[in-house]
Structures are given as C-alpha cells and as structure tokens.
Amino acid sequence: MSSAKNTILISDAVGLVGAFIITELVSIIGKDATPENLEIRAGYHTETELANALANPPHPSYVKPCLTKWKDVASLETAMQGCTTLFLLTPFTCAVVAQRKVWVDLAIRLGVKHILHAGIHNGELPASDIPAHEEWNRQSEQYIESQSQHLTWTHLRINFDGYNGVVSIGKIQYFLPAALKCGWIAREDIAAVAARVLLAPADHAGKRYRLSTESLSLEDMAAIASEVVDKPIPAVSLKPEQFFSMATSALANPDNDDQYVEYMKSVQSMFQGLSEGLYIYHLEAYPEVVEQVCQRPFLSFRQWLTNSPHKAKLLQ
C-alpha cells in the first residue's frame, strides 16, 4: 500500500455488494487496526440510515458513515471531498448512465484518482444483441474510460451473483431453465476482488475483471445441496414473468419508480432470452480472475452453502 493516504468512498454501504466489500476491507486491514494512511467512507442514502450507523457503528472507527443521497448532489459532493478512490454502484434504473455520469463528473472535479465501477458481464456484442440494461452499464463504462485523462479506472463485470438468491425453503429455484449452466459467483468473491482493487488501485488500473467463477445449473446446485444437507433437494425453474412480478412488487419498488420498472423489464428480457438460447456469454466462467487477483481459489457453491446460514432454509 502506498504511503500516500487512500480515502475510499463506497457509494452504497446498504446494498449487499457494498456491505460485503466493507466487511472484506475490514477483514484485510484488521478490526483493531489504526491505519494512518487509510480511511473508508460508507455511503448511506437516508438521514435515518446514517443516524443508525452513527449511533450503532457496524465497523471499526476507520470506517466513517456518510450521507450519499442518490438524488442530492450536495450530499454526494460532501461525501466525496478529499476522496482518492471511489467504488461506484448506483440504483438499477434505466437512468443509470446519467446517474453515474453525475458521480464521475463530480469525482473529476474533486480530484478522485481512481474509480472502481461495478457493472454487468456482457458479450462485447453490438447493442442490438444484448439486453438494454447491459448496454446501459457498458455505456457507463465507456464514459468513465473517456475521462482517462483525469483518473484511472477498473471495471467489474459481474455475471450471476449471490447464491442466497437461489436457496429457498426446501428447494433451489431461480428464473432460469433448470438444466442451463450459467456462470455464477459468490458475493464474497466479488467483495474480495473489489477490496484488493480499492486498496491498491494502481495495480489494477485499466483492467476489466469478468466476475463469474463457476458454471452451474439449478440442477447442479440442487444435487450439491442434496449432498450438503443430506436430504433430496429439487431444482425449480421459475418463469421470467414471475421475476418481473416479484421485482416490481410494492415491496421491491415502494416508490413506484418507472425508471426502475424499465430496468427490470430489460432483466426479464434477459431471462427470456436465456430460456430461448440467446445471450450465451452468460454461460461463461472465469475462475482464474479471483485466483489471480486474490491469490486464493474461488469460493465454490458447495463451500459457500456448507458454511452459509441460508442452508437452514433447505431443511425447512
């Protein structure tokens, strides 16, 4: 780590990816450490969230809670003052390019030196051949790259992530054909790669990391789960329209955000395309990325499930 101070801002400490990254950073640095040249700022999106984090700090003192209200540029500017490194992830809406442009422009003006951008795995195909939400994420990458005279960057291109999303009560289920092998990655591995980039950004400048470690079908996961819990676990294939109903429910979209709904329509189209044999780049896996960046093997689904509290759901 450089002797110059590295002040890292995590744009979203509330979402699962950002929370995992902060946990991984603390694990690497040490809970009881007092780093002189490092500060981590954890972004919360409402005054209530921030007040709770300040009243009951979830992390060591070198992790500083701050306010990053998505639509309040003044709060973003305050949080970004003095930062050198930014982890950039914003809400899933069809306005994602404009949202991230606001962050990037602000970062340039305030002297941020490196942006770690969390995007989506895509097949390097023309825009007409990939779902719209993947193109929006790619356009965000392209805008960041166009500002290379001002800062350096690293892109995370995340495939299917978060095994907890497939573990349900007594079954493995998701919005994919049961026999279709897709590329998955544990959120712990996303966080492990991200943390190492944030701590040593110069070592990863200009890199695009395809985060997809293991090619698995729902049937594969169910077979593994059956062995782990010593009980037959079925694989259940849900329909793309079921995803859309869940993702746009009042619980998932309490503000009735039309731009969020538009993004979810695109994700639904991706699931539909995969069921029809399209978007085959989502079947790819690159286990070497985690191994090279983290200097350890990736976390397999079997390892993740064996040690996960989510395993208990399979026994219900």
Rank of each mutant, 00 (worst) to 15 (best):
A4E: 12
N6S: 14
T7P: 02
T7I: 15
I8W: 05
D12K: 02
A13T: 02
A13R: 00
V17Y: 07
G18Q: 04
I21M: 06
I22C: 06
I22V: 15
T23W: 04
E24L: 05
I29L: 11
D32A: 13
A33Y: 04
A33H: 05
T34F: 07
I40N: 01
A42I: 11
E49D: 13
N52M: 12
N52G: 14
N52L: 14
P57K: 05
H59T: 06
P60N: 09
P65G: 07
L67I: 13
T68R: 09
K69V: 13
K69T: 15
K71N: 14
D72W: 06
V73P: 08
A74P: 00
A74I: 09
S75H: 11
L76W: 15
T78P: 06
T78H: 08
A79R: 04
Q81F: 10
G82R: 12
L88M: 11
L88V: 13
P91S: 13
F92W: 10
A98R: 10
R100F: 00
V104Y: 03
L106I: 14
L106P: 05
L110W: 09
V112W: 03
L116C: 08
I120F: 03
E124T: 04
I130M: 15
I144W: 05
Q147K: 15
S148R: 12
H150Y: 15
W153S: 08
W153A: 02
W153E: 03
F160E: 06
G162V: 07
V166R: 01
S168F: 03
I169A: 13
K171M: 11
K171G: 00
Q173T: 07
Q173A: 15
C182V: 15
C182Q: 10
A186Y: 03
A186W: 00
V193R: 02
A195H: 04
L198C: 08
L199H: 01
A200L: 06
A202Q: 13
D203W: 00
G206M: 07
R208C: 05
Y209G: 03
L211E: 05
E214I: 01
S215F: 06
L216C: 09
L216V: 11
M221D: 00
A222T: 03
I224C: 10
A225M: 10
V229W: 07
K231D: 01
P232Y: 05
I233C: 00
A235F: 03
Q242M: 08
F244W: 12
F244P: 09
M246T: 14
A247M: 11
D258I: 13
V267T: 10
S269G: 07
S269F: 07
Q272R: 14
L274V: 14
E276Y: 06
E276N: 14
E276P: 06
Y279R: 03
L283V: 00
L283K: 12
A285C: 14
P287D: 10
Q292P: 00
R296F: 10
F298W: 10
S300F: 02
Q303Y: 01
W304H: 06
L305G: 01
L305E: 02
T306N: 09
T306C: 04
N307Y: 05
L315H: 06
L315F: 04
Q316C: 11
Q316S: 11
